[in-house]
Design a protein around this nucleic acid. Sequence first.
RNA 1: GGUUCCGUAGCUCAGCUGGAUAGAGCAACAGCCUUCUAAGCUGUGGGUCACGCGUUCGAAUCGCGUCGGAAUCACCA
Length: 576
Amino acid sequence: MTPEKFIASKAVEAVKAIYGAELPESMMQVGVTRKEFEGDYTLVVFPLLKTTHAAPAATGTAIGEWLTANCPEISSFNAVQGFLNLSLSNLFWSETFEGITADKDFGQLAPTGRRVMVEFSSPNTNKPLHLGHVRNNLLGSSVSDLLKAAGNEVIKTTLVNDRGVHICKSMYAWQKRFDGATPESTGKKGDHLVGDCYVEFAKMEKENPAVLDDVHEMLVKWEQGDPEVRSLWQMMNQWVFDGFDQTYKALGITFDKTYYEHDTYLLGKELVQKGLDMGVFVKDPDGSVWCDLTADGLDRKLLLRSDGTSVYMTQDLGTAERRFAEYKLDSHIYVVGDEQNYHFQVLKLVLAKLGFEWASQIYHLSYGMVELPEGKMKSREGTVVDADDLIRKMYEEAKATSEESGKLAELSEEEKDRLYHMIGLGALKYFILKVDPRKKMLFNPKESIDFNGNTGPFIQYTHARICSILRKAAAQGLEGCLKPGLELSPKEIRLVKIINIYPQKVAEAAEAFSPALIANYAYDLAKEFNQYYHETQILKEPDQDVLRMRLMLISTLASVLRKAMGILGIELPERM
RNA sequence: GGUUCCGUAGCUCAGCUGGAUAGAGCAACAGCCUUCUAAGCUGUGGGUCACGCGUUCGAAUCGCGUCGGAAUCACCA
């Protein structure tokens, strides 16, 4: 039980005892006391005035007196206007602290019994990944870990868009203008080489629009299984996959299951027939099939072309049905940009019309675009921020900053390399994940991502600092240990308080599908530690019990930082 | 035009299930390394929470409207 809930339940008892009225717990608004006032938690008494028929301050005082008299956990109070500030006893906090240290799985929520699939990344195989994909990948991966921490079973998946006109464009340009170039012959990463082909095609199209006909012919041949086209397709796709693998590896992204569009693009046609049989779809005279959503405030949606071929939506209906059936999913989350809000709105509606109860368990985690100061990234104008480039730059930046600080003399070259990658990536991941997913975000390539302030490296640094203290303590044979009933300082209580709400944060963040809440929590915790660090000499404390308690406190804090940042996919170093 | 989302400090962002004097970081300025890692800490300046009306004891937060921005409404994916 959280302290807030505890106080609310006690306040219900207080009101009953003093005023004889039974109020629901939801009437008790308990929040964390603002810094300017004394106390840990504040009960807002305004909502109670109709019941108590007394002035705000008098009501607060009466409840405060009852609580301090009847609850040993509540040590003192002060009533300011309609706000009753309550201080919890030192014993309460030291017991809370003890409870946290005893819980090996602190922050891992109880199993929900729900199985959730998270689809993210889902790249096209005609060009390399850029910053927009990076946001998608980091969000998807992080939300997956977040949902796991919240007690769900999670299956991470991706649907590779490996067929279609866009792929054929790259293939066509390669055939005509690349003279047999391969990743080996050019020394170029495969996805970048194929991306070059795609760009080249745009030029070809500009010079002679007729090339589009050739590409469509190629697509038809692909669908017919033409051996030559298929083998070219396979070769170039493999180049891209190899390139993507490197990028995924650098980002620390993995999937439990990979789908390929060439396997799934025909799914959903039976569902169209089912919808027609059920009378929820209609067939136009030209043979095309539609779902009428005008009653839901939307338009008519095409589900099957007049030539009988399927569209994007058809395929998505089919894959959703297959996945829910195959994996017995309770829920499915799609991490897709907000430009596709309409698509997912329609998807859910159509599935509901087909009678699938699980349609309501589909969530579109709709995130905002990453924009540059000039606006959207445009590949035609060469303003796309390439993922590999960015990762490399972050590494260089981390290396430069680290070398400047000159603290890493004892590390081997290999350890340094690992550390630079950890820091560079930590900066990038935190930069992206600390922003509310739903909001669009701005990236300015001219200003490099910061390593100071509210950043990943700040939190990594804080962790390294704690580890340094723990190392020094261990060298003196000292270990963290908590003596029951030991007095905690106000600052230490603050730390315990923040650590204590971590599980609650995980629950909130999972509910909102927002790793940003975890990022901001980790920052608050790190910041609070740094203040404590500057005003408290941990190792020079003469009282051994206090010293050991502090070691316990900071090692617990470090462990919570690791858990929180782990959800963001960010590793914390032991020194930096 | 319809629908949806957004508008908080010079910049990037928190806060939004209504609560006390709206918070951080960056940038600027002033301090703190003979003290456990200065990628840190402390302080100063910086706000009509786009605007208006409403609901409420109380609104950045909820409702309606206005202005500004974005996305989307394909027999594209």
